[in-house]
Design a binder for these strands. Structure first.
Lengths: 219, 219
DNA sequence: GGATGTCCGTTGCAATTGCAACGTTTTGAA
DNA sequence: TTCAAAACGTTGCAATTGCAACGGACATCC
């Protein structure tokens, strides 16, 4: 177990806890680990989600299947990432998604009731865990909100401008894209070539300079 | 203060608390109320958000302004609704939005640090508040996720189908829309008339029956 | 009854977009 | 260094979409 402490500290949930604190807090969370072989299901669609998961090693895939039966990859998690926290904390009874080991993996499970109720044995790091949990959910919330605002723009150009706008609020008028073109197009929910075309137009019109991943917004 | 207890109980945060419990818990949250006149600012863009707000009466508007200076209404809150919880719990230092009284209003403020740390005076409802808070954030998360999935569909038809799909998972193949056409189009982020056209095509093709707000998905 | 406002479907038109395909450039691993 | 894969820009074409405008149905108010 202890060999995973470094991984745990990389998670937003356990960040900032020392070895001793982790040793103290893990038992009172009802934490347990489990290994899965590639292809094995961690949670079936329709099943009751019981615990928050932390990937200790390997890769975990979350997929949803449409009514037509096609399966669609929704998210992928690597070591140090949390999954299921929203669905578990919201008290959903039937999982709308299937969770599966994309590679052999090991997962730590944390029971939400133990996490949220300060424990009687007075482990004082519990408060920090609760704060971490709330902060995580809140941050994800803001992230989703920001992305929603992008996606609700009608045209490709508006999406690009909205995205550039958020970047400029931090990095100033010049910044580096964290995406390949393909990824950016996917992030904005548009076609890659159409986006490329639009970027070209914007450059011609003198709205932006763009070369590779470097962008400068001119006005 | 007490006259607002019913309003408070309508909020997701304080739901299920009795009068006595509220009386016990409010002081230990550092709760305070304040009145604003129509047009007055509750929080300026760029200012430091300090507390979670609960609208007790009146209406509160949240707006963002683009770099070009145009202001855009992001959200509107009425009595019984919470605002600012994500931004405050995420520990954001500079508010990206402006909050303003759209009508004369009264607001209750709750300090997040007091909310998340179980208080020493041992008020035992605190745990329930934390649970409520976490559940709220988690539910909002799921909601945003669902909406995101809609918005990331490329075509109007796919958006409609995705939306119908989520409705069918609950109500079965026949259900009632909670929107006017205008609202639905806005929700899906598409043009109303284009959506109307698409609905017409889908009806012609025998995919759906739709009349007013009643929808039946045929295959 | 008439005026008014909202909701909704329809349509013409121009602009945008997705798609497929191709060639060039860049990247990364052998 | 060399080679294959990935990333990228470009373009023609067809389909979709946004926009603006119009008219009918319906409800409300005076």
């Amino acid at each position: 177990m202890k060999k995973y402490y470094d991984t745990l500290r990389k998670t937003a949930l356990f960040q900032g806890l020392s070895d001793e604190e982790l040793t103290a807090v893990l038992p009172c969370l009802g934490a347990l680990t489990r290994k899965y072989a590639r292809g094995e299901a961690l949670l079936l669609a329709g099943a009751r989600p019981q615990a928050i998961g932390v990937v200790l090693s390997g890769t975990v895939h979350v997929s949803r299947e449409s009514l037509l039966g096609e399966s669609m990859l929704v998210a992928s998690f690597e070591a140090g990432e949390l999954f299921g926290e929203s669905i578990v904390c919201a008290g959903i009874e039937e999982s709308p998604v299937r969770v599966e080991a994309a590679a052999d993996c090991e997962v730590l499970y944390v029971r939400p009731d133990k996490l949220l109720a300060t424990c009687s044995t007075g482990c004082r790091f519990h408060t920090r865990l609760i704060e971490n949990m709330v902060r995580m959910l809140a941050e994800k919330n803001l992230l989703l909100n920001a992305k929603m605002e992008l996606l609700s723009q009608r045209s490709t150009r508006d999406k690009l401008l909205a995205y550039f706008d958020t970047r400029m609020r931090r990095g100033g008028a010049a910044f580096e894209l964290p995406f390949t073109r393909e990824e950016l197009a996917d992030y904005l929910g548009v076609n890659r070539s159409a986006m490329s075309r639009e970027l070209g137009k914007m450059r011609e019109e003198g709205l932006i300079e763009i070369s590779g991943r470097r962008v400068r917004v001119l006005r």
